[in-house]
Each structure stands twice: as C-alpha cells, then as structure tokens.
C-alpha cells in the first residue's frame, strides 16, 4: 500500500490529484461523523456523571441532537459586529479549522493506511500544523473588537505556545526510541521486537504528553481561553452561526487528532490481537476521548499564571529529563 500512496513526494499528475481529492472528501465526511458523535458522547457521558440524562429528544436516544444543533448553526444569520475588523473576522475561523483537518493526513488509522500519507516527517508535520491554529484563534479574538475576546485570544496564544514545547519534547522521546518520525514506522516499531507499547518505557513522557495535550486542546482544567465564568466565552464570544461552528469543529477535530496521535505514539496505534486494526485504533482513540471528558467532569479550572508556571517550571524540565534518560538508555542498550 505504501507505493500506492507515494504521491506525497512525487510531482502531481491527474491520477494523484484525483486520489488526493477523494481521500480528502472521505476523511472530511468521516471526521464530521466522528465529531458529531464525540459531541454526543461527551454530552451523554458528562450527563451521566452528573446525574442527568443528557440529550434524549431528537431522534432515538437523542442520537440526532448534534445534527440538529449543527443544522441550526448553519442556517443562522452570519453576524459580523459593526466595529469588527471585517476581513480578519471572517477568515479567522477558517484559519483555525484548516490545520486541524490537515493534521489528520498523517495519522495512520489502520495498517493499510488508505487515504492517509506515509510521510517521513509525520510527527514534525503534526506539530507544525497544529501550531497554526493559534493564528486563527488570536486573529479571531483580536478582530472581534471585544475585550473578552481579546483576553481569551491572548490567553490561548500564551497557553498553546507554552504547551507546544513540552508536547514536542515528550514526543521526541518516542521518536528517539523508534528512530523515526514516521508515525507508521513508530507503530511498526511497537509491534516488532521487544513487543512493547511505548507507554511502558516512555511512561514519564506519556504523563507529560497527556497533560500538555489537554492544555493544547484547551480542555478542562486548562480551558482558560473559553473560561465561561470569567470571559463569557473567550475568543469566540462574538461569533455565531457557521463561523462559530468552525471554531467548535476545529476543537473537536483536534480532540480526535490528538487522541489518535496519543494512541499511535504510546499505545501501538492500530496494533492488537484478533480484531482488525481500525477497530483497535477506534477503541484506543475512544479511551483517550473518554479520558478528556472525564477530566472535564471532574476538575476545576487552573489560573493563568499557574498554568504558565506549570508548563515552564514543571513540564518542560520533566520532558527534558525524559529525553535525556531515553537517549542515555538507548545508547547503553546498543
């Protein structure tokens, strides 16, 4: 299969372009389904944790609730505040959404990675692209001409940039062990000798990863950018309709992408006995998503200054320690 999708580093021809378009459309359709039902899953799950029922009106068991919500957002009037910086205001949600969708290109959903790229710089690609979302968020907050949005946007920028560092550093530990930045190779390294998922040798790295991932996703307890009780709704206060939907979509696509990345790096991606690879991948991703929702139902919110202190004084040193340990052990064992 690898050669079938080797168009990534080849000059374009009709066949390759067609391939790309089909791949993109399929992934988009798939991811919309995943996002729809992870929102449903979130509402049901947190509902149960809080002695509530959750959505149960639209469709059987409320299964169509999210679809109805999205439909409502799509047919809403596209309001642009009078004092907003119009062009930037309009483009910001798209800027925030695009990279979230693009990172999915490198995540190996199964052993036969149809529709995803076999890229030798997969990890780097993910980190670089996901950093671009910040631009959309900051611009959205800035262009809204709203003080809450501005503070929300600034908080997001500070938070995401700070936590990108420990996130990348913790991933480096895995990269060192696998000897590759290709996500497919990383999975293959986990299913060949010594047959152990990287969660075991990289446990410290995993802890740093999951904390930074929560912060990168702006989920509780790191949901400062949209801290409702302080900033009303943060950077997307002024957004409504489908532009708001784009921000929302970006958030949940990242949730899926980050869970996929975590499953790939630390839990052997698609690998597992008996069941086909994509089911194993689905199970692992669901566990990650469940974990994030569980956190959301349990934790209060951390404060801005504590958030940054935590990143720079705790997580980054820890990830460096992890990196050095990995390097030394790897050198000694060879």
């Amino acid at each position: 299969m690898a050669d079938f999708f080797s168009w990534v580093d080849k000059p374009l021809d009709t066949h390759a372009v067609l391939n790309m378009i089909i791949g993109a459309v399929v992934i988009l359709a798939f991811i919309l389904g995943v996002v729809t039902y992870s929102i449903y899953f979130q509402r049901k799950l947190i509902g149960w944790m809080q002695w509530r029922i959750g959505p149960n009106r639209v469709g059987p068991l409320g299964l169509l609730q999210t679809i109805a919500d999205v439909l409502k957002l799509l047919i809403k009037e596209d309001v642009v505040p009078e004092k907003a910086d119009r062009n930037i205001f309009l483009i910001a949600p798209i800027l925030a959404f695009f990279p979230s969708f693009m990172v999915l290109a490198v995540i190996p959903f199964s052993a036969n990675h149809v529709f995803t790229a076999y890229s030798n710089v997969g990890v780097l690609y993910y980190i670089a692209l996901s950093a671009m979302t910040i631009i959309g968020v900051v611009l959205g907050g800035w262009a809204s001409n709203n003080k809450y949005s501005l503070i929300g946007g600034m908080r997001s920028a500070a938070q995401m940039i700070s936590y990108e560092v420990p996130l990348a550093m913790s991933i480096l530990g895995v990269v060192l062990m696998a000897g590759s930045m290709n996500l497919v190779n990383i999975v293959e390294a986990q299913i060949s000798f010594p047959y152990v998922w990287y969660i075991v040798p990289q446990f410290l790295g995993f802890c740093v990863f999951i904390i930074s991932a929560t912060a990168e996703l702006s989920r509780t307890p790191f949901d400062l950018p949209e801290a409702e009780s302080e900033l009303v709704s943060g950077y997307n206060t002024e957004y409504s309709g489908f532009r708001f939907a784009f921000f929302y979509l970006a958030e949940y696509v990242y949730l899926f992408a980050m869970s996929g990345l975590g499953a790939t790096l630390y839990f052997g991606g698609w690998s597992g006995p008996f069941l086909p690879g994509w089911i194993w991948f689905g199970i692992k991703v669901t566990c990650f998503i469940f974990f994030f929702f569980w956190l959301q139902a349990t934790m209060p919110r951390i404060r801005t200054d504590q958030l940054l202190t935590f990143a720079w004084k705790v997580l980054i040193p820890l990830s460096i320690v992890n990196l050095v340990l990995t390097a030394v052990l790897k050198y000694l064992l060879h």
Binding site: M49, Q50, W51, D223, S229, M299
Partner: peptide, 13 residues
C-alpha cells in the same frame, strides 16, 4: 462557587 472556578459537576450534585 465551584462553577465559577470551572468545575461543573459539584454544582449539579
């Protein structure tokens, strides 16, 4: 108070 601090569940309990 917990809702203000960002935790939703204690509010419902």
């Amino acid at each position: 108070y917990l809702l203000d601090l960002g935790a939703m569940t204690p509010f419902l309990y």
